[in-house]
Amino acid sequence: MQRGQQGTIATEGAELYYESCGEGPPVLIIQGGVGEAGATAQLAETLAQHYRVISYDRRGLSRSPASVEAPPIAMSLHAADAAALLTAVCREPARVVGASIGALIGLHLAVQHPGLVATLVAHEPPMSAVVHDPAQEAALDRVADLARQDVRAAIRHMASLTGNGQAVAEEGARPAPPIGDIDTTLSHFFHHDFPAVRAATLDAAQIAAVAGSTTIIPTGGTASRGQWEYRCAAHLAHELGRTLIELPGGHNGLISHPWATAAELRRLFTQAESS
């Protein structure tokens, strides 16, 4: 990301690192997986031609240390972090884009703090409360077992479940290199974030209750059709009375297809604002 601004804000038991670029209406990107603030740098730089784009390291990752006295990590705590960041750096409700765990955090944010979110694009949120799939649960149990011995093997197996790497990336698209130590980051993810996602109970009815004040747009990747996270997005869209929107690429499309995704996000934001 072009580093127009960097800073930190204090939240309950943690200090969040954030960075932003561009000027205009605020857009918050909530990263998926173990992504740091700059993971979607190419997407952010493209959106920054029209918006002020903000991203951050989740608590416990890289430049966002959490204290040993911090509360146990849950999706509601991550949502509170995102709310604290928006309150600190934005003067108006933001457009929020989240992928995977970032989408689930975004949905919790919209439910807990609807006044802070104008539009939410939730890309393939992993939601057992929306689509309960015993085969998927067994596969995630296997990921958890692997993580106790080898976090790198666990993340490889997890990526195989989402179909990451199957979509052909846009020419020139590349992930940003990680800033923090990858093994430390993965250990934190599997010890805290992974079980928090699996324990989340947010359902479509709770989300529908705020859909009148916040435009919620579930999306799936064109290369993800049939995958569990895509089916979660499709079912959520159906429950909200919306048509599922497809974004280029797969589960990791915000990184693999930054320019095509930026164009589609601009269209969605404009459409939401005019409706």
Rank of each mutant, 00 (worst) to 15 (best):
R142L: 13
H235V: 13
Y56T: 00
H113L: 09
A208V: 08
P125I: 03
G13N: 07
L247R: 04
V197G: 05
E239S: 11
A153I: 09
S76Y: 04
G180T: 12
E229N: 08
S274W: 04
R95Q: 01
I155K: 00
E239M: 14
G250H: 05
G98W: 05
A169T: 10
A48H: 02
P93I: 06
R148L: 15
L77F: 01
V151W: 04
C232R: 01
D81L: 00
S67G: 15
A169V: 14
A79L: 14
G7A: 13
S224N: 03
E124I: 04
G4N: 12
G221P: 06
G13T: 07
L85C: 14
V130L: 07
Y56F: 14
L109Q: 02
L140I: 08
A208Q: 09
L120K: 04
D183C: 04
A173C: 12
H251I: 01
E229D: 07
R225Y: 10
P65T: 06
E239P: 02
R142Y: 13
P72K: 10
P177C: 08
L85H: 12
I29R: 03
I54E: 00
S256N: 06
G60S: 12
P65S: 03
V121G: 02
L86M: 12
L104M: 14
T261E: 01
P258N: 09
A211V: 07
A66T: 15
A129H: 11
L244K: 06
A79I: 10
A14L: 04
Q112S: 13
Q206I: 06
Q227L: 10
C232F: 01
A272I: 12
G102C: 07
Y230I: 06
P72R: 14
P26K: 08
S275I: 10
V168C: 09
T219E: 05
W259N: 08
T87A: 14
H108N: 15
L85I: 11
A205P: 04
E12A: 09
I217W: 04
L268K: 01
A103Y: 03
S20M: 14
I207H: 01
L236G: 00
P93Q: 12
I179P: 06
H235M: 13
G253N: 03
H238W: 05
E12Y: 00
Q206C: 09
Q112C: 11
R142I: 11
F189H: 07
Q227T: 11
N164S: 15
A154I: 10
A209R: 15
V197I: 15
R95N: 02
A37V: 03
L161A: 09
A260K: 13
V53N: 01
M1H: 05
A79Q: 02
A199Y: 12
A10P: 06
L120E: 06
A154R: 02
F269L: 07
L140P: 01
L146M: 15
D145Q: 15
R91G: 13
A139N: 07
R225D: 10
Q149F: 14
G60Y: 03
